[in-house]
Design a protein around this nucleic acid. Structure first.
Ligand code: FES
Ligand code: FES
Lengths: 146, 146
DNA sequence: CCAATAAAAGACAAGAAGGTCTTTTATTCA
DNA sequence: TGAATAAAAGACCTTCTTGTCTTTTATTGG
């Protein structure tokens, strides 16, 4: 896959939490619920959400009636923030056939095909936000589960 | 990276062998030489070239004055053949955020951004051949080592 | 204030990707 | 023909990703 499994899990979870927020004002959603709805291993997902929370992409509350939730600001995070945090930005920067550096000065044979697509992808990831994607989910244009 | 390390090694090796062929009529190039020029671990590369040879993307000769070489037909193989063999075609087919299936019927929130780019990449990989890339290398437009 | 709850944290294990080392097999040419 | 050569093959090893299980910490509502 283009994104690591971990990163895909993270994105889907943020989308679900974001979606939940609009459904139920101030509603929190628990780890167990997320992992069941998205069919992601519970404890593994726990770590991922921990990371997201620690880096401010997600909010959490411990204890009774606790769970995960998102603020308005967090909803406005671009997809890129998540990908950069989990997978880094190598995939957007490194040479497609693994040369030490990707440069216009010494482009590799796939450079001119690769770079524009990589950059288009980057742009998309920067302009799409959790919020914009949640909207397309809520309007029924797109889906989060099969 | 978009391609696995193994796959990138494979592509670069094929390019080097292809390039060598045009330089020196009927010339074979040894594993050691390839691994040194491209800075790829020798024994690891050995396995990769074995795979390429077994599947007809590369030719080899054992013994004294043996080595790896490519036929005209092999030079005309598209990049896609290599990628499919080593990495498979998941990256061109699977959903970007890991849904079980990628479909127009139930597209995920990144589907409309992802799919066209994936397909453009696919098209490029199908139209670029070892030969076409070797040509761009030989004309000095592109480079294989930093 | 305390029992239930839920996230945080940490130890550990399986699997895959990447890498190393040694032995075997086929080939050539002196 | 046999010693040198080079790929093929196979046994391991290391690291990273993914996944499991247990313990700790913080919160809250009765
Ligand atoms: S140099 Fe290879 S992609 Fe730019
Ligand atoms: S459904 Fe996700 S990329 Fe097509």
């Amino acid at each position: 896959m283009f994104l690591s499994k971990t990163c895909a899990y993270a994105v889907r979870s943020l989308l679900l939490v974001g979606q939940h927020r609009l459904e139920e004002e101030n509603g929190k959603i628990g780890l167990r619920t997320i992992s069941e709805r998205l069919e992601i291993p519970t404890h593994f997902l726990g770590k991922i959400l921990q990371t997201l929370t620690k880096h401010g992409l997600l909010s959490s509350a411990k204890g009774v009636s606790g769970g995960f939730y998102m603020t308005d600001e967090q909803l406005r995070n671009p997809l890129m923030t998540v990908v950069k945090l989990i997978d880094g930005s190598d995939v957007f920067e490194k040479c497609g056939i693994g040369l030490a550096t990707c440069s216009e000065q010494r482009p590799c044979p796939v450079h001119y095909a690769f770079k524009p697509l990589r950059e288009k992808m980057l742009k998309t990831f920067e302009s799409e936000t959790i919020e914009s994607m949640v909207k397309s989910l809520n309007s029924g244009d797109t889906f989060l589960v099969v």
